[in-house]
Design a protein around this nucleic acid. Sequence first.
DNA 1: TTGTATGCGTTATCAC
DNA 2: GTGATAACGCATACAA
Lengths: 336, 336
Amino acid sequence: MRKRETIRRTTAKEVAAAAGLSKWTVIRAFTPGSSITEESKRRVMEAAAALNYSPNLLARSLATNSTRQVAVFVDDFRNPQKLPFLETLTDRLQAAGLVAMLININNHFDHVHALLHADQRQVDAVILFGTAFRDETLTDRQLGNGMPPMFVLARDSQIDGVPAVVCDAELALRDIVNHLHERGYRRPGFMSGATALSTALRRRQHFTDFWAEKGVSEIELLSAEKYSAEAGAESVRNYLSQMAPADRIDVLMCENDILALGAIDEIRGRHGLRVPEDIAIVGFDNYELGGSSAYSLTTYEQPRHEMVEAIIGMIVGTIEAETVTLPGKLIIRGST
Amino acid sequence: MRKRETIRRTTAKEVAAAAGLSKWTVIRAFTPGSSITEESKRRVMEAAAALNYSPNLLARSLATNSTRQVAVFVDDFRNPQKLPFLETLTDRLQAAGLVAMLININNHFDHVHALLHADQRQVDAVILFGTAFRDETLTDRQLGNGMPPMFVLARDSQIDGVPAVVCDAELALRDIVNHLHERGYRRPGFMSGATALSTALRRRQHFTDFWAEKGVSEIELLSAEKYSAEAGAESVRNYLSQMAPADRIDVLMCENDILALGAIDEIRGRHGLRVPEDIAIVGFDNYELGGSSAYSLTTYEQPRHEMVEAIIGMIVGTIEAETVTLPGKLIIRGST
DNA sequence: TTGTATGCGTTATCAC
DNA sequence: GTGATAACGCATACAA
């Protein structure tokens, strides 16, 4: 690793010497709201500009005990939804004077490892983005003793005392089921991707419950092996091949848009059926491609900006750090 | 911002006191390869474990003048290709003991701002991922004086002395054109998304050149307003509406897969034409959905892992920091 | 308003 | 092998 010593930055001390003042006066010039003469400040800024000086944030962090860095844990880069979320998240963090450390949680680098590392780096907070610890992985000791405050984004928190920001799944599924019921669908199916996830289970449960309220107690359950278009297509293929046309579902809700797109392709392509006339499709997440005229996928959009603002509010302390549930938006298009 | 002083970490000094040794001995216990007795090390580690101690990387960075942090600049979160790249990049950085600071370059936070900020944070390097400065934005002064070393990933470098890692566009387009020519296509078109980008211009130029070598000098040029499926569809729609069937192109190369997917939908859906029989389609980037049976898009895959390894090699100094051009892979599917 | 001393937690260097 | 001194660059508290 090429060290930076070869290209030393100028320090406050050097600026002070150039300006004929003490280094503390230089510090003051760069500290908003501190008491300093206009004249001194001008002289400092002049010398600073000449020497190309700017404060060393590393040293500042060490002295203030605050790095203004936030670790963001991500463990599923397959979900395209991560990208717009990362865009919003980094943008709002930056607006708040914070910066994101992107941590990839995978086989080489697990949650505990990452948390310990983030702690060593003195981050001000950790965002578990779509990720959660299993309860067992962390001892109370590790959680209690000096770990940075943690927040869960877009996923239920599994740990007591760790707040989360989530999209209101109950409201979402209620809106969806109401919409489908109004359109006259009565034989619903639900395709899940990875049933181990609590968010996934929850969506399915709400879907089932609200249909039950409508008097529909039988929900066809499909499952895809993973969250990919191919897996969604395969799941539908299996289902259609073993089901007589008369007994088929008339609407399929997929756990996310990727599965839904795969399902639509399969239904139209290989089976020559129509969407929504033969089978209607609903997705989740409002992934961009679903909005194109070819798919026109009815879906549900998570309130990305509000979720991000909420979690940042928690981090900077303007919002009480308790779990926040925010309403999203049903987006009705041609697939239903 | 909640400071961390409330939850103070234990320091080497405290461990030293508990172990009855000096703090320097504690440091040695945590420094691989330093000379220390087995006995001392054992005592230190015992005390450290009891007090839950781990070294403060912030202080270490200040002392060693190396943060082992790398700033990654991203300015286009619309391109889904960013996500798998980010996955690979973070994974390999972490494997090298580095960590990524994800910086969102946008209207609120431009390149210069970001570079100055990264410099203040003392990052060991800056990766311009798919991004480039315009030549004018940086003065020689800013570039020369103590800025962290910069590297461009997946884009041509615009600045002298800033190395880049790119996919070999010449090879890619040669392979593509050869393939299309072999298949018998003779009336090629090229759809570009944002012609301002140098990478984009380059692809188009190579496409034109290689067709010229085959004796085909006329290339139909379509342009989409942005890199979205909708824009790709619209571009094709305009083209088809103003072109007599007999004069149509027989193959369309799109600058990336998103445009290509939109084009396919439009060609099949609204115009009832077949792919590849009426018009063949080629994309670029091997975006996941293109591989699904519905699209079966012929495309070109950038050598993601090799590119990432190369740029990390440059950063840690195992590879000479000169621009590296790596060969990708043509992926032939049903759309041609 | 300005200058001084001290601390943040580590590493590098030298003496023992 | 171990302890001590200095240094990294800035912030805080206090004195002038």
